[in-house]
Every structure is written in C-alpha cells, then in structure tokens.
Design a protein around this nucleic acid. Sequence first.
DNA 1: GAAATAAGTCAGCCTTGTTGACATAAACTA
DNA 2: TAGTTTATGTCAACAAGGCTGACTTATTTC
Lengths: 179, 179
Amino acid sequence: MTLSRQEPNRPVRTPLGPDDGIDFDLIELLFFAYRDFTSDPDAILQGYGFGRAHHRVLHFVSRAPGLTVAELLDYLKITKQSLARVLKQLVETGHIVQVAGSQDRRQRELYPTSTGRALMLELATPQSRRIHAALGKADPEERAAIKSFLKSMVDPELRAQIDRLPGERSHDRRINGSS
Amino acid sequence: MTLSRQEPNRPVRTPLGPDDGIDFDLIELLFFAYRDFTSDPDAILQGYGFGRAHHRVLHFVSRAPGLTVAELLDYLKITKQSLARVLKQLVETGHIVQVAGSQDRRQRELYPTSTGRALMLELATPQSRRIHAALGKADPEERAAIKSFLKSMVDPELRAQIDRLPGERSHDRRINGSS
DNA sequence: GAAATAAGTCAGCCTTGTTGACATAAACTA
DNA sequence: TAGTTTATGTCAACAAGGCTGACTTATTTC
C-alpha cells in the first residue's frame, strides 16, 4: 500500500524525445522560425507607434487593395471590434483609406495610400531578405517542397484564401475588378 | 501648380505583387501556417484554463527537464515577470515542480510532473499529426530542405538553442546530467 | 564581509484579443 | 412601400500576455 503509492508531483527527469512518436524538432523549428521572422518588422513598427496587428492589416490591404472589411476579417480571423481599433489608427494616420463599395454601398473598400504602401514595403523587406537567405542554395524542387509543406499546414478549407492573393511571377496581377 | 499636386491620401489600387521584389507568398504562407499550427493546442488549452504561454513553458520544460528559469527565459525571449505569472499557475496546478539546483542552490530546476508531461503530449499530438500530414509524400531530401529552411530562418546566434534540445532519432537522449 | 547573481514579487501599463449590445445606412423581399 | 436582413461602426467591459521599474531574499563568489 505504501510502496505502490507514488509521491505526488514527483519530477519527471527523462526528456520527451523523438522516440515518443512526436515531431518535436519541426514543432520547435516552427516556433523559433516564426519568433524571429516577426522580430524585424516588430522593431520597425515600434518607431511608428504601431504593433503587429497594424502590420497584418496593412499587409493584406496592400496585397489585395479594395478588399472589404468582411474579407479582411476572414483573412485575419479576428473580430470586427479588434480590427476597428487598429484600422481606425491606420486611417487616421493616412496609411489606409476607405471607399464606399461601387456595387454595394454598404461595403467599405480598403486601399492603402502611397504612405501605407511604403510602410508595408519597409516592413516586408527584412522579412523577404531573411527568407531569401534561408532559401539559400535550395534548388527549385526543394523550394517547391518548402512551399507545399507550409501550404499543407493550413486548414484545408482556408487554403483557397491563399490562392486569391496575387501569386507567382507574371500572371494574375489584379486581385479584383477595381483598378 | 494645381496639376502636379496629388490629392492627399489617394487610394492606391494596384496590388503589391511578386514583381516588387518581395517574397510575398512565403511571407503569407508562414503567417497562415503558423496561425493554423497553433489553433489545435489553443482549443485544448481552453479546457484547462491555460493559454499559449502555458503551452510554451510546458513544452520546453518537458523537452529539457531540469532547465533553470534563466535558460527557459532564453528560449522564450520574455521577461521573468511575464514568465512568473504562467509558471506559478503551472506549479499550483501540479504540472511543473521546482527543485533547488544541486550545484548552485540559488537556481530552480524545472521539471514536469507526470500530469504536466501528459498535457504536453496531448498538446503536441495534433500538431505532430498536422506536420505529418503536411510532410505527406516529401522524400528525405525534401524533408531535409524544409528543416534546413526553417532553421535558417532563426537568428544565427540563436540556432545553438535548437541543437541543445534532444535531437534526431536514437542518440542524444539526455539533455543534461539530471536523470 | 561585501558584492554579484538567481529568482521571486509588487505595481502599473500597453497591445490585442474577446463578448454583448446597440446604431446606422443600404439592400433585399414580401 | 414596409419590414427585414446585411455590412459596418461603436461603446463598454474584460482577459491574456507582453512590458518596465523597483525591491527582497537566498546563495555564491570575490
């Protein structure tokens, strides 16, 4: 009775490792990669009094100019109240403008200003540099494998969103009719 | 004078695309992949009254049992005050125990309990499943390229942290002397 | 014995997410 | 046309998880 009873809250001293059937290295790699991937723009944003949330809004508005508030919420997967706060600031600072929808005038089409676009590029540049360096000497087949892996990590029903953004070099320059 | 003056805050209607010299698709892929990668454990954590911060602490304590508070902070890149809040909860709920360091008794070695270890595995399982599915039919060379890419995304001076964790199958089962 | 170090704690603040309720204008529908 | 639905905006309150600064305690190092 006393021997079979374990001390409660005893420290477990053996580390969880690859033999436990879990892909720990990929899990950690994703954590570390994303942590540092976001660190460059975070530092720049501080100088503007903005945060990561502003970056994401500015990113999608620049990549898909003319998208509606509802479409933006669908990319970000946050509530409209969360969006409202940062969107208001981006509009007040002249980074984004809202235009009443041409077909449906209840909608607000979101566009970057030249200021907003410039900031978006400033934020994307170090990220792109980091990606370029990390891609390094990967051949086209390996690059395809990397993209395929990341895309497959996304929930299947949400992968369509990705395809709606301007894609690979040359074709598909316009995201929607508004030019 | 009037013609050369642009209306301020005019909407820019052309989307930023691949011709602007930025790797937009990889930037977005990383955002979407990480967003969904964290969604499974986030849902599970809710049922325990924990958040993503608890997950990260539990993860590293389970992977490197016996690490000190300072070492953990170095993985997470947060302040000790931020850590204190979640660590205290994990200790109070019996997921983690603290043991005075054997050499240096100022240090607190952190260990998971069996409860903590079990929760860590529960959280890691859907993530590993997602990774496994995303890896899909990638051959060993492609898998190596994916890992190499993610590792290269990490700041060079921080890559050593990754190597300190239990690595590939078979060797290196122990992270430090405590067993 | 003094100084440095590891960790814990208190207080307050910020960003960014949440819910719930309600307002307005435009579009749709019976 | 009246009534409903829809797209968006807004107010208030709250929570998680970051942050800084200041201070304490125990222990180690010099």
